Computed example of a mutant assay.
Amino acid sequence: MPEVILLEDEPVLRQELGEFLEELGYAPLCVSSLQEFDLGFDPGRHHLAVIDIGLPDGCGLDLIQRLRQDGQRVGIVVFSARQTSPDRIMGLGMGADHYLGKGCDLDELAATLAALVRRLGLQQRPPEQPAADWMLEVGPRRLHIPGAPSMPLSQQDLTVLRCLMDQAGENVSRRQIIEALGADYLEYDQRRLDTQMRRLRRRVEAESGQTLPVKTLRNSGYCFYQPARVQA
């Protein structure tokens, strides 16, 4: 999972972007100032950076210039409210790979990062799992994780995983999952589903050290990409 360092001083936007990057499968480190960036940036881990320009303790352009002068090959995307043509030219001239305005669709940010991942050769195969399948026990509400202890589930987590694991390897739409939860698709706040999936991923990783093999299909749904069994 590529690690991204995100430098954004506005708290609400920083949280929104961090959650968005998580949904895309990245591992974001979110910082709010140049000082925090310098403390958190690890060239061995952070091969992608999303950087704001106007910051409380300086200018993001100076940071980009310094990174390039130090020979850092990190892929840099400027994400700024300053988006005139001279701003963009200056940012690219300082060493940014791409320059996006904050008014852009987040799907454009996703596509830009994906292009950087390909260009920099950062593609990663899903982590290898042990030979045994992932198994979901419906009655006891337990998830059996290969090579790790089983994990109890809430009814909601069970319902979501059953939708995905019953159709392992296939794309499962948000509508299918929401209707399985007994909710009205048109009235349901889909951010609730995103939050539930993030929490489930974190819990599986915290309890087993393994990555839940579910990929997010942007604006579409999810896919459980490992072999799986469901036992009633």
Score class of each variant (00 low, 15 high):
Met1Arg: 01
Pro2Cys: 10
Ile5Glu: 04
Ile5Gln: 03
Leu7Gln: 12
Phe20Val: 00
Leu24Ala: 00
Tyr26Leu: 06
Ala27Glu: 13
Pro28Glu: 00
Pro28Ala: 03
Val31Phe: 02
Ser32Ala: 13
Leu34His: 06
Glu36Lys: 06
Asp38Arg: 15
Asp38Trp: 15
Asp38Phe: 12
Leu39Cys: 04
Leu39Lys: 03
Gly40Glu: 10
Gly40Thr: 04
Asp42Lys: 09
Gly44Lys: 07
Arg45Met: 06
Arg45Gly: 09
His46Val: 06
Leu48Tyr: 08
Ile53Met: 08
Asp62Gly: 03
Gln65Cys: 09
Arg66Phe: 06
Arg66Ile: 00
Leu67Trp: 05
Arg68Ser: 08
Arg73Pro: 02
Arg73Lys: 15
Val74Ile: 13
Ile76Met: 07
Phe79Ile: 09
Phe79Gln: 11
Arg82Asp: 02
Gln83Gly: 05
Thr84Tyr: 08
Arg88Glu: 12
Arg88Pro: 04
Ile89Thr: 05
Gly91Asn: 05
Gly91Gln: 01
Leu92Thr: 05
Gly93Val: 05
Ala96Lys: 04
Ala96Leu: 06
Ala96Phe: 02
Asp97Met: 11
Leu100Asp: 13
Leu100Pro: 10
Leu100Val: 10
Leu100Trp: 09
Gly101Glu: 11
Cys104Ile: 05
Asp105Trp: 07
Leu106Asn: 04
Asp107Lys: 09
Asp107Ser: 11
Ala110Arg: 09
Ala111Val: 12
Ala111Phe: 13
Arg119Leu: 13
Leu120Glu: 04
Leu120Asp: 06
Leu120Met: 10
Leu122Val: 06
Glu128Ile: 07
Asp133Phe: 09
Met135Asp: 01
Glu137Gln: 15
Gly139Tyr: 11
Pro140Phe: 04
Arg142Asp: 02
His144Phe: 10
Ile145Phe: 09
Pro146Phe: 11
Gly147Asp: 08
Ala148Arg: 03
Ser150Tyr: 14
Met151Asn: 03
Met151Asp: 12
Pro152Gly: 12
Gln155Phe: 10
Gln156Ala: 12
Asp157Gln: 14
Leu158Thr: 05
Arg162Pro: 06
Arg162Ala: 13
Leu164Val: 00
Gln167Ser: 07
Gln167His: 07
Gly169Leu: 10
Asn171Glu: 01
Val172Ile: 08
Ser173Ala: 06
Gln176Trp: 00
Gln176Ile: 05
Ile178Phe: 08
Ala180Glu: 03
Gly182Arg: 10
Ala183Ile: 07
Ala183Arg: 12
Tyr185Arg: 03
Leu186Tyr: 03
Glu187Asp: 13
Arg192Cys: 03
Gln196Met: 02
Gln196Cys: 09
Leu200Met: 15
Arg203Met: 08
Glu205Phe: 14
Ser208Arg: 07
Thr211Asn: 00
Thr211Ala: 12
Val214Thr: 15
Lys215His: 08
Lys215Val: 12
Thr216Val: 08
Asn219Val: 11
Ser220Gly: 13
Ser220Met: 09
Tyr222Asn: 15
Phe224Tyr: 13
Tyr225Leu: 07
Gln226Pro: 08
Pro227Trp: 14
Pro227Tyr: 15
Pro227Leu: 14
Arg229Gln: 15
